[in-house]
Simulated scan of single mutants.
Amino acid sequence: MKHDPLFQPLKLGSLTLTNRIVMPPMTRSRASQPGDEANDLMAEYYAQRADAGLIVSEGTYIAPLGKGYAWTPGIHTPAQIEGWRKVTKAVHAKGGRIFAQLWHVGRLSHSSLLGGKQPVSSSALQAIGVNVFIAGNEDGTPGFVQASEPLALSVDQIRVIVGQYRTAARNAIEAGFDGVELHAANGYLVNQFIDSNANTRTDAYGRSLENRLRFLDEVAHALIEGTGDAQRVGIRLAPLTTLNGCEDAEPTTTYLAAAKLLGEIGVAYIHIAEADWDDAPHMPLEFKRKLRATYPGVLIYAGRYTGERARDAIEAGWADLIAFGRPFVANPDLVQRLRINAPLAQHHRETLFGGGAKGLTDYPVLDGAAA
């Protein structure tokens, strides 16, 4: 293909990405225990995929109360920073670029993951019917359990969490990341402030749309302070979806307002998570065009994209980068496969969360050799 949209370079702040293919954040639950530290196995996993234009790490929790799933990595202790330094060195040695996704799950956690404490959220509303992954059920085996009932954050506690985001951004830069991505999607803490049905506050963080976007605004500014550069900050949003108990009464209005705000702040990119379950509806093209008209920065889309759909999106102009989630699990050489339109291997569901190298670093490349 003489002019392949997927293989054109793109400027992202001071970085030049060699292609338009993104490896998005995917929880794999392989952090070393105790301590939830990134490790050599994770470094190998990311390095195998370093020819992506950009890698965004799996969700990485910013503080002890931000954790929501067993065996996920953190970035708030010296040992965790050192663990992530192994990963960034391995990726950079292969010529890759990697951002850390900073994560606070809010109410989507369980007291057993939090030293017996209750999770926290915008409001004291339990995410009924939403399960989280814990290391040991009553029978001692890992599994999913109903998320615990949360406590509503006070204004002082909100300020503490904003500070934790700032510190986490500094830690990420210390660990060698090229930037950070705020997880403001999928029903996690920032999303719990944005979406109207998850936020019943009556103070400066609730009721009006402006107030519901205040936490996003403050955290985005904290990340810019922590990294020292707005162009080292991206934001992940999940507009028009209802994930993990979060739903907004007027999502088009809400998320176009969020995009306008983020454009004014000057962050490098918005990463849009589309619905990706079976038979999920496509996000309306009209909304994508409005988003492009509203937000001046780089736009990344993720959600069941094929190579053909990705090329069409970039050519149409409403997307700059396309993220491929599940395909990157089973295809460490996904970039090469997309380049030559080769068939894609399928991942094994039973090895997605937890375990060791099996289902993480042992997927073969096209010639059958180890990646």
Rank of each mutant, 00 (worst) to 15 (best):
1 M>R: 15
1 M>P: 15
8 Q>P: 01
9 P>H: 13
10 L>P: 02
15 L>P: 02
17 L>H: 11
21 I>M: 11
21 I>V: 15
23 M>W: 00
24 P>V: 07
26 M>F: 11
28 R>H: 13
28 R>I: 12
28 R>M: 14
28 R>K: 10
29 S>C: 13
29 S>W: 04
30 R>T: 09
39 N>W: 04
39 N>V: 08
47 A>N: 05
47 A>Y: 04
51 D>R: 12
58 E>I: 02
60 T>L: 13
63 A>T: 01
64 P>F: 08
64 P>C: 10
64 P>K: 06
65 L>M: 08
67 K>C: 12
69 Y>F: 15
70 A>D: 14
74 G>Y: 10
83 G>N: 05
90 A>Q: 02
91 V>G: 12
92 H>I: 07
93 A>D: 13
93 A>V: 00
95 G>N: 13
98 I>Y: 02
98 I>G: 05
100 A>M: 01
101 Q>T: 03
102 L>Q: 11
102 L>A: 10
107 R>E: 08
111 S>A: 10
111 S>D: 01
115 G>M: 08
120 V>L: 05
120 V>D: 06
124 A>S: 14
127 A>N: 09
127 A>C: 13
132 V>L: 07
135 A>I: 03
136 G>S: 13
137 N>P: 00
144 F>M: 01
147 A>S: 07
147 A>T: 02
147 A>K: 00
154 S>W: 09
155 V>I: 15
156 D>V: 06
159 R>L: 09
162 V>P: 06
168 A>H: 03
175 A>E: 03
175 A>H: 00
176 G>S: 10
177 F>K: 11
178 D>A: 13
180 V>P: 15
180 V>W: 13
182 L>Q: 06
186 N>D: 14
186 N>A: 14
190 V>G: 14
192 Q>V: 04
200 T>H: 13
200 T>K: 11
200 T>W: 06
201 R>H: 07
204 A>Y: 00
206 G>V: 11
207 R>H: 09
208 S>T: 15
208 S>N: 14
212 R>V: 11
216 L>R: 00
219 V>Y: 01
220 A>V: 07
220 A>L: 07
222 A>N: 02
224 I>W: 03
224 I>Y: 01
224 I>S: 02
225 E>L: 11
226 G>V: 03
230 A>P: 10
236 R>V: 05
238 A>L: 11
241 T>C: 12
244 N>F: 08
244 N>C: 08
245 G>Q: 04
252 T>Q: 01
252 T>N: 05
253 T>H: 03
253 T>S: 08
256 L>Q: 08
256 L>E: 04
257 A>T: 09
257 A>R: 04
258 A>P: 02
258 A>M: 02
261 L>F: 02
262 L>G: 15
267 V>Y: 05
268 A>I: 00
269 Y>V: 03
269 Y>T: 00
271 H>G: 08
275 A>Y: 00
281 P>W: 01
281 P>M: 06
285 L>K: 06
287 F>V: 05
290 K>Q: 09
303 G>S: 04
305 Y>E: 14
306 T>D: 10
312 D>W: 03
315 E>I: 01
315 E>S: 14
315 E>Y: 05
322 I>Y: 07
325 G>V: 00
326 R>A: 12
333 D>R: 04
341 N>T: 07
342 A>W: 14
343 P>H: 06
344 L>F: 04
348 H>V: 10
349 R>D: 14
352 L>Y: 15
354 G>R: 06
363 Y>Q: 06
366 L>W: 15
366 L>E: 15
367 D>C: 09
370 A>E: 15
